[in-house]
Nucleic acid binder design. Structure first.
Ligand SMILES: [Mn+2]
Ligand SMILES: [Mn+2]
Ligand SMILES: [Zn+2]
Ligand SMILES: [Zn+2]
Lengths: 135, 135
DNA sequence: AAAACTTTGCAACTCAGTTGCATAGCTTTT
DNA sequence: AAAAGCTATGCAACTGAGTTGCAAAGTTTT
């Protein structure tokens, strides 16, 4: 697990056995994953440990969290260069059929003209519909 | 409460005392309100009744709900003509200072080009930042 | 007035997320 | 190498928004 180790240390995360496993699982996903789903990928793993692992990953910008409105937060790997700045923001897509949540990394969030004296900080944009796999 | 009564019956909601009071409170708000906040506007009111009142209002398109990512759903009156169609969708704004959530009724959600074979159904777009009152 | 339906109020529950705390496992100092 | 100190892990218990079951109160229909 040299490669995985590297990804962790590059984000200033100490590479423990658990963290390597979690990163591996996250890397294998084609869509964003919830804490519960992550838990279920393991035979035996503690929810709290996974929870804190995800928090650590998120704080160190290895992953980003997605609030897709389903009631459970999803997590997905950040691009290598991602610093979670406004310019790294992208649209997310929730398929109403398969319930998968996708990062549309190539779809930037369109510009908006806000009312006078409103200052923009960040935007959450979630598109719901049918994904290419379900179509 | 002739006027309030009318708004309810026009949306096929039987005008009970409680419902009139709830609609009155909702009409007075300048920003969207949560179930808990609604509860606190009354001396003594049952959360369940308010909950179900909001559900009834929402089903009948008197109000719409807003998931602003704070963990508590907000509710705001619909425009008279609103049928909660895609064309009635608008951007919402959450002020990170005063924590108020506003309907930006005049700001339509911008068009997006989705990846091939993705079909759009609806969009939730929440802008976070500083509102005009807090600026 | 009785029967049928709707609304309300209370209590209890669900479920995702979160915290406290003790133990286990490293790392650094002596 | 042992002791001390820090970090990660595991379990249990808690939180808070939302939701459901059920009985009582209120309305409408017959
Ligand atoms: Mn993403
Ligand atoms: Mn609105
Ligand atoms: Zn799908
Ligand atoms: Zn504000």
């Amino acid at each position: 697990m040299k490669e995985t180790d590297n990804k962790l240390t590059m984000r200033n995360i100490k590479p423990t056995a658990m963290r390597e496993l979690v990163l591996k699982v996250l890397s294998e996903q084609k869509s964003a994953i919830s804490l519960l789903e992550l838990e279920q990928k393991f035979e035996k793993a503690d929810k709290t440990t996974l929870y804190r692992t995800l928090k650590t990953f998120e704080e160190n910008k290895l992953i980003h969290s997605i609030d897709d409105g389903t009631g459970s937060v999803k997590y997905a790997l950040c691009k290598e260069t991602c610093e979670c700045n406004p310019s790294d923001l992208h649209v997310h897509f929730l398929c109403t059929k398969c319930k998968h949540t996708f990062c549309l990394n190539d779809i930037a969030i369109p510009n908006l003209t806000l009312p006078a004296n409103f200052k923009l900080e960040t935007i959450n944009m979630v598109v719901k519909g049918i994904c290419a796999n379900c179509k």
